[in-house]
Design a protein around this nucleic acid. Structure first.
Length: 808
RNA sequence: GCCGCUGUGGCGAAACUGGCAGACGCGCGGGACUUAGAAUCCCGUGGGAAACCGUGCAGGUUCGAUUCCUGUCAGCGGCACCA
């Protein structure tokens, strides 16, 4: 078959008949199948795109043939850092390079033959889209879910610019090699923590991979503990969070994160130089290193003391970078006897170690971090575990110094970016009225085209006078615009909603349209999004629900992660590894269908693996075999009504394939689905080789083969469907349904074991009782030998599988 | 470092809920067809002469473990400004 011609023919026909567009008037149940949209960083589709979109499209087509009205949109996550970096390097404007890349990718995505509904296409960098991204920001702002506070950024003092984590290599700027420092800026945040509890409990009912749910759960990091207030001699109060308030009598010092607002305030004059040097030093260390338990602990004494509320003891206040300002209260009570980090720190700095928990199961070796009996804790001695913590927390509450507290590791979402290529934050600053949201009717706040990208200490928009200067909508006076743009994750947190009503210019989406199409039934994308994108999108959905814009709680009911196709050397494909494999030559040589089929067959979908093209020829051969037999059988007469053993076998193979492929397609187990197709083809060839055959049965089996295969090789099967006289599109046909009767066999092969070792196999008539099976097995000559003179102590019959005789 | 995942023939991989390890392919070996090659078709193929041994490694639970548990090694993903 001339695949190039066939692909063009069917793609043109689908386009012309709007075959892939969602049918708004259909009464069939809807199925929203969504692949994570593409980031147009390079001009061409890479193997990862094909791997994500090809097999998932086959799933969508499968659902369509099962009678669903399928919606499968596609778009582009078009803002982002790479386009801006490319602009800095080459001078090509991000808008120009992005639009060019998108145009190329659109063409390639069409050539893939996926049934994307292009009428719902979105590009996040279009005004018609980011207008509504800005609108989302305003709604969150109005709802009190967007706020400003100081937060650190990576700062390159030489380039005078903010760096993304990715641009920091070994603590230095990737461009100039200067050591990067942390610097505080006032930035915008979304209050995702407000939804921490619901984001956690909502996971329960989602059909998501368990590992992904677990990762989100750990990311949210709920822990129940106690907040305790330590009064400082200066009159300030330090609040600490601990999950081990049963150790509070063992506190020998308190530690603040170096960024803690009280850090400098509590420092005595004598200690100031040391403290300042330490803070400076820590600003160069990243969080991952700071959290490393293997790294040597460092810290500095502030010179001040505070009081342990439970025993009135004065303890010194230290700064140390193993305490993070972003977690809990940014301060901890240190109990070196019962915490490994505190123990290491106390040992290094010669601080006292006071044991207050005794091991009940043996010797107490410090640091002892498990639950045990409280000692040296006055009235609480003898208590342990939860009971101890409850009692201590209640006591602290009674003292008015804190009490039980639920804490989340989840932090608010920092959405400000000091960059150009993103949606401008729709806020302005008026000397009179303060922070003022841009009125909705003035949206979008347009991203100006003529900007200076060269990093020189000011973000690109801040340098653009015409953009920055504006008028306050409240007082009419002069005002300045916010110069930061939004994190691209904001754009991708609501795109799946926009697809439902992509061309609406009055509102981000019509509520009825969204409630009709959403939630997404099946969402497919990389596991690297497990925590951030997927959590942000869930947060947006919940916030929009609470603001009355939609009527469901979760955006993605089912989630599937495709694996990663690595380079042939087993490394992630990248320019630096020089191991990038382009799909283009394969598609050119074998066609889109063969390439898709190969991706489905050659890898476990959720695992991925190193690229290898061994076997792509086998797929081409398989397709040839299918074509040959389909065209051969087409010309057979009908009739031949016999139903012997051979016919029964063929019909069994046919319905076994239907049953298994249906199950495998549903489960995204594409490699086994294709294997079952191959088996069916083998069975058909075997039957066709017989002298006499039931032509009607053979024709029906071949027809089912075409229908089963259609989602996996869409152009190829459309063409064969047409050539064999099929009416309309093959995708308008119903997916074959299994006949349970055809799958019932007269007998089943059992493995027979003696003492759990296989001795022989035997055919067992179906429907026998366990006792009858046991008797039959014992009568086998091979078994008789083994059992000679021995007593059968136990007989285990696993129905349909095996018999295990235990003899003594 | 922390969180999560993965590890099965020469290779890609299968294996329902603890029940015959290696389906389906690649590769390889043999054969048919052909003047020859290509293509195609058929047969065989975990290791071992065999007893037996085999799912990263060491243990455990069980009549039975690729599957469950403990420990360990290796690789991969994420760690909040890459998306």
């Amino acid at each position: 078959m001339n695949m190039k011609e066939v692909e063009r023919k069917w793609q043109a026909r689908w386009e012309k008949t709007k075959f892939n567009n969602f049918d708004d008037r259909s009464s069939k149940p809807k199925k929203y199948v969504l692949e994570m949209f593409s980031y147009p960083s390079g001009a061409k589709l890479h193997i990862g795109h094909w791997y994500n979109y090809g097999p998932t499209d086959s799933y969508a087509r499968f659902k369509r043939m099962q009678g669903y009205n399928v919606f499968q949109p596609m778009g582009f996550d078009a803002f982002g850092l790479p386009a801006e970096n490319y602009a800095i390097k080459t001078g090509v404007h991000p808008k120009d390079s992005t639009e060019k890349n998108i145009a190329t990718m659109e063409g390639q995505l069409r050539a893939m033959g996926a049934m994307f509904d292009w009428s719902a296409e979105i590009k996040t960098c279009d005004e018609s889209y980011y207008k509504w991204t800005q609108w989302m920001f305003l709604q969150l702002y109005k709802k009190g879910l967007a706020y400003r506070k100081e937060a650190p950024v990576n700062w390159c003092p030489s380039c005078s610019t903010v760096l993304a984590n990715e641009q920091v290599v070994d603590g230095a700027c990737e461009r100039c090699g200067t050591t990067v420092v942390r610097k505080n800026l006032t930035q915008w945040f979304f209050k995702i923590t407000e939804y921490a509890e619901e984001l956690l409990t909502g996971l329960e009912n989602l059909d998501w991979p368990e590992k992904t749910k677990l990762m989100q759960k750990n990311w949210i990091g709920k822990s129940t503990g106690c907040e305790i207030e330590f009064d400082c001699d200066t009159g300030d109060k330090i609040r600490v969070f601990t999950t081990r308030c049963d150790t509070v009598f063992g506190v020998t010092y308190v530690v603040l994160a170096p960024e803690h607002p009280l850090a400098k305030k509590l420092t005595t004059k004598e200690q100031l130089p040391a403290v300042e040097a330490y803070i400076e030093e820590t600003s160069k260390v990243n969080e991952i290193d700071r959290l490393s338990t293997a790294r040597e602990k460092t810290g500095v004494f502030t010179g001040s003391y505070c009081t342990n509320p439970v025993n009135g003891k004065k303890v010194p206040i230290y700064l140390a970078d193993y305490v993070l300002y972003s977690y809990g209260t940014g301060a901890v009570m240190a109990v070196p006897a019962h915490d490994e980090r505190d123990f290491a720190f106390a040992t290094k700095y010669g601080l006292p170690i006071v044991k207050v928990i005794e091991n009940t199961a043996g010797e107490t070796v410090l640091p002892f971090t498990e639950d045990g009996i409280m000692v040296g804790s006055v009235d609480f001695d003898g208590l342990s575990g939860e009971e101890a913590r409850d009692a201590v927390a209640a006591h602290i509450a009674k003292l008015g110094k804190g009490g039980k507290k639920v804490n989340y590791r989840l932090r608010d979402w920092l959405v400000s970016r000091q960059r150009y290529w993103g949606a401008p934050i729709p806020i302005l600053y008026c000397p009179v009225c303060g922070t003022v949201p841009v009125p909705e009717k003035e949206l979008p706040v347009r991203l100006p085209y003529d900007v200076e990208f060269r990093p020189d200490g000011k973000s690109p928009l801040a340098k653009h006078e015409k953009f920055m200067k504006t008028v306050c909508p409240q007082c009419g006076g002069e005002a300045t615009r916010e110069a930061d743009t939004l994190d691209t994750f904001v754009c991708s947190s609501w795109y799946y909603l926009r697809y439902a009503d992509a061309n609406n210019d009055r509102e981000p989406f019509d509520r009825d349209e969204v409630d009709k199409l959403l939630p997404v039934d099946t969402y497919v994308g990389g596991a690297e999004h497990a925590c951030m994108h997927l959590l942000y999108a869930r947060f947006f959905t919940k916030a929009l629900r609470d603001m009355g814009y939609l009527d469901f709680d979760e955006p993605f009911l089912r989630l599937v992660h495709q694996g990663v196709i690595l380079g042939p050397d087993g490394n992630r494909m990248s320019k630096s590894h020089g191991n990038i494999v382009s799909p283009d030559e394969y598609v050119e040589e074998y066609g889109a269908d063969a390439f898709r089929l190969y991706l489905m067959f050659g890898f476990s979908y959720t695992e991925g693996g190193p690229w290898s093209d061994d076997g792509i020829k086998a797929i081409a051969r398989f397709m040839d075999r299918v074509e040959k037999i389909v065209l051969k059988v087409k010309d057979y007469p009908t009739g031949g009504g016999m139903l012997g053993k051979e016919e029964k076998n063929l019909n069994y193979a046919r319905h076994y394939a239907i049953s298994r492929i249906t199950r495998d397609m549903e489960a995204f187990s594409f490699n086994t689905a294709v294997a079952r197709l191959m088996e069916l083809v083998n069975a058909i060839y075997k039957y066709d080789a017989l002298e006499e055959k039931n032509y009607t049965l053979l024709k029906n089996t071949v027809k089912d083969l075409l229908l089963l295969m259609a989602p996996c090789a869409p152009h190829f099967c459309e063409e064969l469907w047409e050539q064999t006289g099929g009416k309309g599109s093959v995708f308008e046909q119903s997916y074959p349904k299994e006949d349970p009767n055809a799958l019932v066999l007269d007998e089943t092969e059992y493995a027979v074991q003696v003492n759990s070792r296989i001795v022989c196999k035997t055919m067992v008539e179906n429907g026998l009782s366990n006792e009858e099976i046991e008797a039959q097995v014992k009568a086998l000559p091979e078994i008789g030998e083994k059992l000679a003179g021995k007593e059968v102590k136990k007989c285990i019959v696993v129905p349909g599988r095996l018999v295990n005789l235990i003899v003594g």
